[in-house]
């Protein structure tokens, strides 16, 4: 490896298509008009929310193949992940298709992980068309990580709202679209935060570590990018990241933003903003890709963060290990 953690892609695979599907609440949020499909009902016509999540991911995969003007037989491999135990939603969604499947898990950073692995596979010349997909569902995540939906409790002020939605993109060497030029793979960072209702604070150090490493390896500064966008640090987490970077002498200016913080409108009362694997997946594959195609953004740095915890580790009082991968996308 030329640089620790960072790779430069030689052939630079392109994002030839992207597709997003979200729940009704997300559709009313700030990115509402950019999404491809907004569900009328969270249960998506299914009996359980778990089945709805599978269907969402399945539809996102079908949608992206269509939008990339490909046929299912053109797809060489699917990389997908979600938040449920044993990433069942993705696996169940994958059984509907006739191409190989690799499950990836990076919690809320899964989109970055699948895109990073996917673009390396394409860049290496082994696969022509790769589909990357990630999704999450508020009601399934809530039951797995927190409390039953009908329990009358209050959400702490630092908590975030898991996005109901799935986003997917197709990577290929042939076709039009933004290209992936560099990837910095992140280390697992744990700065001793054990409050599950404050994921932003837990993940900010991971974003700091990957960001610093990326700037150092690529000899770039925040000013070199039109947009630096983190995944779901939320309001508090992104403020913490700005502070942490300032301590290292890196100023994050107006070109820095966070998907989780921007996702919902203020009156939607999501406290610190959005989170979940579907958060940055849906923002990236709708708004950001579209703005890149329009030429508004030429070069962006995409840094989804993920909190790698489980319900068991939380109950045992463990601190939260976090990871963050950085991807440079150019038009």
């Amino acid at each position: 490896m030329e640089f620790e953690q960072t790779i430069k892609l030689k052939k630079q695979p392109r994002i030839i298509g992207s597709y997003t599907i979200v729940g009704p609440k997300e559709g009313q949020g700030n990115f509402g008009k950019y999404f491809d499909y907004i569900m009328k009902d969270d249960s998506f016509g299914e009996k359980t929310y778990e089945k709805a999540e599978r269907k969402m991911i399945e539809n996102a995969i079908v949608g992206v193949i269509e939008k990339a003007k490909l046929l299912p037989k053109d797809i060489d491999i699917l990389l997908a992940g979600d938040l449920l135990n044993q990433i069942v939603s993705s696996s169940y969604a994958a059984r509907a298709f006739q191409f190989p499947f690799l499950g990836v898990y990076g919690a809320c950073s899964t989109m970055a992980e699948s895109m990073a692995v996917g673009s390396v596979l394409v860049d290496g010349g082994y696969f022509d068309n790769v589909v990357c997909c990630t999704g999450s569902h508020f009601s399934t995540a809530e039951r797995q990580y927190r409390f039953p939906l009908e329990l009358g409790n209050q959400r702490p002020p630092t908590s975030q709202w898991t996005v109901t939605g799935a986003g997917s993109c197709a990577l290929s060497l042939h076709g039009e679209g933004p290209k992936i030029s560099m990837i910095t793979f992140g280390k697992v960072i744990d700065w001793g935060v054990n409050d599950v209702n404050n994921m932003g604070a837990a993940m900010a150090p991971a974003a700091r570590d990957t960001m610093l490493r990326h700037f150092k390896n690529t000899k770039t500064t925040p000013g070199d990018y039109d947009l630096i966008v983190t995944g779901d640090l939320g309001k508090l987490g992104s403020e913490i990241l700005i502070d942490l970077m300032e301590d290292e002498g890196v100023m994050l200016g107006v070109n820095y933003c966070d998907c989780g913080q921007m996702y919902f409108k203020r009156e939607q009362k999501t406290l610190c903003g959005a989170s979940g694997a579907g958060c940055c997946a849906t923002v990236f594959n709708s708004y950001i890709v579209e703005k890149m195609r329009d030429g508004q953004y030429k070069k962006i740095l995409f840094l989804p963060t993920g909190a790698l915890l489980s319900a068991t580790s939380t109950q045992q009082g463990d601190t939260i290990p976090c990871v963050c991968h950085a991807i440079v996308i150019e038009m």
Binding site: E150, L151, G152, N153
Partner: peptide
């Protein structure tokens, strides 16, 4: 009940109704 709980917090958790809610909801 969860909407009352979101608004009232302890006001709807501490009474016996909160106990009932915590059995019915799961």
């Amino acid at each position: 009940y969860d909407q009352i709980g979101k608004f009232a917090g302890g006001g709807s958790i501490v009474p016996i109704t909160g106990f009932s809610n915590s059995i019915t909801s799961p």
